[in-house]
Simulated scan of single mutants.
Amino acid sequence: MPRLTPLALPAYVVAVTHLGGRAAFALGDGSVHLGHAADDVRAVQVHDGGILAAVAAPDGKSLITAGDDGRVMATDAEGATQLLFEKKGKWIDQLACGPQGAVAFASGRMAWVRLADGQVVEFPHEKAVGGVAFLPKGLRLATATVDKAILHWVTAKGAPAELGWKGAHTGITVSPDGRFLVTTMQEMALHGWRIEDGKHMRMTGYPAKVKSVSWSPKGRWLATAGANAAILWPFSAKDGPMGKPPLQLGPYPKLATQVACHPTEEVVAIGYQDGMVLAVRFGDQAEVAMRHPSGEPVSALAWSPDGMTLAIGTESGAAGLVDIGAA
Rank of each mutant, 00 (worst) to 15 (best):
M1Y: 15
G30T: 00
G205I: 13
I64P: 00
D306T: 11
S212C: 05
Q94L: 06
G20A: 06
M1I: 15
V259G: 02
A159D: 10
P251I: 11
W112L: 05
H262S: 08
V120H: 02
L222G: 05
G130L: 01
P124R: 00
A116H: 08
M1Q: 14
G171N: 04
D306K: 08
E315P: 08
V44K: 06
A54S: 12
P251F: 14
D29H: 12
A66I: 00
Q285A: 11
K148N: 09
G20D: 03
F180T: 04
L151Q: 04
T204E: 12
M1H: 15
I324N: 11
V277M: 06
V146F: 05
Y206G: 04
I312A: 06
A56P: 00
A286D: 12
G275L: 13
S107W: 00
P245I: 08
G50V: 07
A149N: 07
K148S: 14
L163M: 11
P207R: 07
A77V: 07
V113N: 00
Q248T: 13
G28F: 01
A223W: 04
K61A: 15
W221G: 01
P263C: 01
F134E: 06
A8Y: 13
S216R: 03
W215V: 07
H292I: 15
L190T: 05
R22V: 07
L4D: 05
W153H: 09
Q248N: 12
A161I: 09
P207S: 13
C97G: 10
L4S: 09
V213I: 09
T145S: 09
P293I: 14
V277R: 07
A286V: 08
A208Y: 10
